[in-house]
Structure formats: structure tokens, C-alpha cells
Nucleic acid binder design. Structure first.
Lengths: 292, 292
DNA sequence: CAACCTTTGTGCAAATTTGAACATGTCTCG
DNA sequence: CGAGACATGTTCAAATTTGCACAAAGGTTG
């Protein structure tokens, strides 16, 4: 029972009773309809129709096919409606992923988004492994750092995450604040485990602070935060994160050169869907409001 | 949502996750699969799959299609099984038609047929109008007289219906029996309303009996029977029918030249079905047994 | 890390499907 | 009864679909 188009043709013939009528409805030539029926009957080995000068009347097999194909036709129409409608509708799952360190900033935004579009279910994935857009693991990803250049991904700049240098009260009480580059060697800095880190503030760190002064290294920004809070030294933190900890002392305020750009990334196949567009528009609007 | 073949293609891709796999299952080239998907998505205006180097993964729309098409595939397999199975099975309706005058002889045979094939429902149509095979009004027709030459019908000889001349006791008591052709003008005969009747005994009647002697004419054989029984004159009746009326006097016993041939007629589209073949075989076997 | 395998994607030619025209037959209506 | 409308069915050319060859790119494995 392969070749579903022939079933569809037979269905119209059974429904209308004539080859000509079916051909008109299907938008094909009546010769095509005849050939479809002949092929289908030949493959089944059973006559579906009885031919006569006034048209085709369905045999029992033909009537059976009529019932089944009728249901199929209904199913397909509904499916088509759902699929096309889904294009206009913001509903179903919307999977967003980012590195874990951004979750504090993003969760409130996603919650607000969900309240505006109640039919959508937001799934916010953060984890140690990178969720990949190209395998359909997420609709939207928020990536930090250098501009992602994956093919098939459409990426647009969002905002920058401002980074400053912070230390705990305890640290400052013991070591004081550096007054200039000449003091750096007398301080303890928290750096990245990866010596080649491209984060702009770590590039600055490599270029301005002697390696010996970097006495604590972590892979993870969460670990850096914890280290700073524990008084391990001077470390770089997002300004928004730092504000949440009144214990911290701002060693250096955020600089533009330290800012880490954030990117909104979507897969081409999903980028044009209204659901994704709704989220992107929502995020941008939210950031614009925050700026003002 | 026209072109069901593309839905079938998309279904296999969604099910297997790769274009290549779907192409193999479908028995087509993978380029064809890609083109089907592209066409379908283009028409729907929604992406069904997300493309990546390891294959295609279904979007929500694609998964919706998967569910619907899965059900459709099941339905079509079952349909195919039913249709093909029906070919081997003697079940469902079996519509037989004949002129009403043969019903006495045929009903017992059809009843026996139904007992042998309990899953079949026999519908025996007799009526004033001719039920036509070419419009699917019946599977098998029993026709009397000259050989039917309708195209698209397959006709085979069955047996002959023997006709003799009969009259009622009352008639014979009053008029006696004709001793030879010279007596015909002194008798009353029952003839056909149609002066051109091709029934062999009526041809004989026209050629051998003066028109004035034919004093009662009917269109219908049932009416002829009634007329004979009522004493209207000498009329022609089927031998089997006459035997059921002991009041009748056999004026002339059945002659071969008076016999009316009977034909089993089926439409070509139905002739090869096992159901029809079962009935035809049954009828022939029954007649052969009767002969012995 | 390099070779190999699997996957998608794209021109171009072959094969298949489709469409137009015509033949034929039946039914209907005046 | 005869003309017209409408149905199926067949033949041949055109159009579309399909298959093949090849390219490119990510994934896998030794």
C-alpha cells in the first residue's frame, strides 16, 4: 500500500462517482486519474470500482477505501491547520539555553515572557555541556564572548555584560586596594584556569598583572564568584552579580574594554517562527527599557 | 495539504531521523526525499525538520506530522490487508438478480449457497425493472432468452428452462384438447402482448396458430400463469412451475424448440472475484447434480 | 590527528508521469 | 429520433519527476 497519492485519487473518485469529477477536484487530467486507479487496482489485485458509461461506482473494497481515506483527509486537513496555525501562534515548548552564569540575569526575563504568552512553556536549560542548536536541543541560545560563527545559525548582538574587579571586605582589610599598576605584584588575583582565555578582562589581566600575582585559578565563573566572596583575592565579576553581594568592595568599576558581548543565537530553521521571534523581540524590548 | 506522497516521505524522515534512511525504506533516491521535504515545507510555510550533519530532527510541526502519518500508515496497512483478504474470502454482500419468474427455481439454490458460505449475505433482487450489472446494482444476473451481448459483461450458458403448453381442467372440460393443427382455430390461446416476442414458444405460436385464436394477451409470465389457472385458454408455462399446480392439464409436453436458454451474466470487473466465482461454481455444480 | 564513513546538497540526463487530442459510447432533452 | 452533453479510454508528445555522479562537511574510530 505504497503511493498515497493514488489512494487520494481513488478516494476522490469514490466520493464523486466519476473520473472526470475527481480529475477536476484534484486539478489533474482525467487520464491521470484513470491511470492511478488502474495502478492501484493492479497492485491490490482487486477491483475498487465498477466502470460504466455514467462513471465509476465503488465496489465493497472501494467503499472501504472511501471510509479510510475520508478519515485520512480529515486528519491531514486538521494537521495542516495546526501546522500553519502554529506558525501564527506562540505556544508549545520554547527551549532557551545559556551558560549557567547568566541564569541570574535571565530567569526573571523568561518568567516575564511566559506571563505575557501564557500558552508557551519555557524550558531554560543551563548545564555544563553546551546545548546545541543544530540538533534541535534548543530554540534560542544565549552565548557570551566572541561572536559565534557556526554556519546555519543566525546570531545577533544583544547587550554586553559589564565586568568589574571585586574583592571581599576581608581581603581589602588585609591587603588594601591597589593604587596603581605598581601595586599589582603585592596583591592576589583570581584568574582563569585556561591560560588562553579570550575573555577581555582576562586578556587585560594577562597583559597587566604579573603571573605570580594570580594565585587562584578557576574554570568556572561560579567558582570565581565563590572565591572572591571567600576572600581569595581580586576577581572579575559581572556588575549585576556583584550588586547582589553588599559585602563586596568594588576594586575597579566596570570598563567598556572588559565588557563581554552577549549574543542571541537561533538556528536558521527556527529563526523565522513567530514563537522565536516573539522571544527575541521581548528580550530586546526589555533591554531597551532597562537602558532608559 | 495536497500531495499525500510527500507526507509519506516526511513521515519516514521523521521516523528514521535521516534522509538517507528514509530514502532506503521508501525505495527512492535520497535527492528525491530532500526535494519532497523542501516542497512540503515550502507549501506549509513552516519548517518540519531541523537540518544538521547527522540528519534531520523533527520540529514540533514535524512531530505532529509524524503522529498523524503514523496513524495513517497503520490505517492504510489495515485497509490493504482487508482489501487483499477480501479477495480470498467469500463474505459481504452478494447481489443476484433475475426476472421474477425464475425466483421459484432459484431461491432454494441461493439459500443453499448461503448455508455453505455463512459469511456471505445473499440479496436476491427481482422486480419489474431490470437490475443492471454495469451500474453495480448486482454481482450476478440470471437472464433468459437470447444471449445477452452487452460489452463488459461475461455471459455463460447455464441451462434451459423447459416450456410446455397447459390449460386448466375447467378449460379442457369445456373445449377438450386439440388433436392437431386443424383444431387450433377452435381453441383459445394465451399469447404475449408484445407481438414481436422472441420467446421461442411464442414464435411457434405466431407461426402455427391463427391470430384470432389468441384471445388473451399478457405482458408478464406471472399473468400468463394466472390466466391459465383461471381457464382463459391454452398457455405456455415453465414445466417446473406447471408441476406445482396439479389442476393443470398438460396440453403439449415441453419441446426442445420451446426451451428458453438461461444465462449467467456477471460484469467483467467482478467476474474474477472469488465471491462471484464461488456462486457460479455452486450453481453449475448444482445443475450438474440435478441432471444425473 | 588522520583516514574513513555517513550524511546532506546540487547540476544534469534519463525515465516516468502527465496533459492534449481524439475516439467511442450512453444518457437526456426537446 | 436526433442532437448535444458528458462519460470513459487510448495514443503520442511535453513536462515533471527521478536517479546518478559528485561535492562538501561533520562525526567516528583506530
Amino acid at each position: 500500500m505504497e503511493n498515497w497519492d493514488e489512494i487520494r485519487t481513488a478516494y476522490q473518485v469514490a466520493r464523486l462517482g466519476t473520473v472526470s469529477g475527481a480529475a477536476e477536484v484534484l486539478g489533474v487530467h482525467h487520464a491521470t486519474v484513470i491511470r492511478h486507479i488502474d495502478a492501484l487496482e493492479g497492485r491490490l489485485g482487486v477491483k475498487l470500482f465498477q466502470r460504466h458509461a455514467r462513471g465509476y461506482t465503488a465496489t465493497e473494497a472501494g467503499e472501504d477505501l472511501l471510509r479510510v481515506a475520508q478519515a485520512t483527509d480529515d486528519q491531514f486537513s486538521q494537521l495542516s491547520g495546526r501546522i500553519k496555525g502554529r506558525g501564527m501562534d506562540v505556544s508549545g515548548d520554547l527551549v532557551v539555553t545559556s551558560v549557567a552564569s547568566l541564569s541570574q540575569a535571565f530567569t526573571p526575563m523568561l518568567v516575564a515572557f511566559q506571563r505575557q504568552y501564557p500558552k508557551v512553556t519555557v524550558r531554560y536549560l543551563t548545564g555544563d555541556r553546551l546545548f546545541r542548536l543544530e540538533y534541535g536541543e534548543a530554540h534560542v541560545a544565549i552565548r557570551a564572548g566572541t561572536i559565534p560563527d557556526q554556519p546555519d545559525n543566525v546570531v545577533q548582538p544583544m547587550t554586553s555584560s559589564c565586568f568589574g574587579a571585586y574583592a571581599s571586605h576581608e581581603y581589602v582589610a588585609e591587603y588594601g586596594l591597589p593604587q596603581g599598576p605598581q601595586d599589582y605584584s603585592k596583591h592576589r588575583f583570581i584568574g582563569p584556569d585556561n591560560e588562553d582565555s579570550r575573555a577581555p578582562f582576562y586578556v587585560w589581566l594577562r597583559e597587566n598583572v604579573p603571573t605570580e600575582a594570580i594565585r587562584f585559578r578557576c574554570t568556572d565563573s561560579e567558582a570565581v564568584n565563590a572565591a572572591v566572596l571567600s576572600g581569595a583575592g581580586i576577581g572579575f565579576m559581572g556588575a549585576a552579580e556583584a550588586e547582589r553581594h553588599p559585602d563586596l568592595v568594588e576594586v575597579y568599576p566596570p570598563r567598556d574594554e572588559w565588557a563581554v558581548p552577549l549574543w542571541l543565537v537561533t538556528h536558521v530553521d527556527l529563526h523565522r517562527t513567530t514563537k522565536v521571534q516573539a522571544l527575541l523581540a521581548f528580550i530586546k524590548k526589555r533591554f531597551n527599557e532597562d537602558k532608559q
